[in-house]
Design a binder for these strands. Structure first.
Length: 232
DNA sequence: AAGTCGGACAACCGCACATTT
DNA sequence: CAAATGTGCGGTTGTCCGACT
């Protein structure tokens, strides 16, 4: 199954290893991870994959999360829970690891983001001229060819209300999320009406939105995103 | 100035799923 | 159909570094 770990390097990647990895990706392309360790890179294929997907991939956006990204992240987490890859798929340039780390850092500990007296090295960006314009819309990983419109209007609605003050932002986001069930229920309700004639039906319409974990295994995320799109 | 604390993030690990043989 | 292999994902850990004492 997994490659034997004897003799394979672990820990922080060096610039030389990064360079070797990039050469391998250039040659074999993404997805041929088992080829990489054969190119003089003494790392297991999984490590190579992670390094590329989480750090070296040119599509990755570094730096602070913008306010609309945070807003979207909160909404998506409410809906999807810890499906970090799905959430990341809706945040262009962000990886599942990024999203996961950000969530745990800022929200996972039930910590008020501003209650600390320390000035942290990273902040939630709340500028009114956020990068939302540059961000455009999130793409569907499974529909990466043409992408799809994602929550953009809802996000803009939120953005228009986001304050430059962290406390206000946090409270606002919380209040927004408190209304998420209503919004979600409404979304499902609309879909039910739209599908009343017998077209594709969602399997989650009976679910309380606070208990997504108990969702039917038949739950189809693509249907969910189509609902998102239809709503936005 | 030095030591400590804690946040942020990169990387590791184990498991599950998909694909191939 | 079952085993082997490859890949993806989420949870956890380790390290770095800035802020504080």
């Amino acid at each position: 199954m997994e490659a034997p770990s004897e003799g394979l390097r672990k820990g922080v990647w060096t610039a030389e290893e990064d360079s070797l990895l990039k050469q391998c990706i250039d040659k074999y392309g993404e997805g041929k991870w088992h080829q990489v360790p054969t190119r003089g890179l003494n790392r297991c294929c999984k490590s190579c994959r992670e390094r590329w997907l989480n750090y070296m991939n040119p599509n990755i956006k570094r730096g602070e999360f913008t306010s609309d990204e945070v807003d979207l992240l909160l909404r998506l987490h409410k809906l999807l829970r810890n499906r970090w890859s799905l959430i990341a798929g809706r945040l262009p340039g962000r990886t599942a690891n990024d999203v996961k780390n950000y969530w745990k850092t800022h929200f996972g500990k039930k910590k008020e983001p501003c209650c600390t007296s320390r000035t942290r090295k990273r902040y939630i960006t709340c500028s009114s001229d956020s990068q939302s314009q540059d961000l455009g819309v999130a793409k569907c990983p499974s529909q990466s060819n043409n992408g799809c419109s994602q929550l953009s209007e809802q996000t803009e609605v939120c953005l228009s209300q986001v304050s430059n003050v962290d406390e206000e932002k946090y409270e606002f986001l919380n209040s927004e999320m408190d209304g998420e069930c209503t919004w979600w229920d409404s979304l499902l309700e609309q879909n039910q009406v739209a599908n009343a004639e017998g077209s594709v039906a969602t399997t989650i319409n009976e679910e309380d939105c606070t208990s997504m974990d108990s969702m039917s295994p038949m739950f189809d995320t693509e249907q969910l995103w189509s609902l998102f799109n239809a709503e936005g």
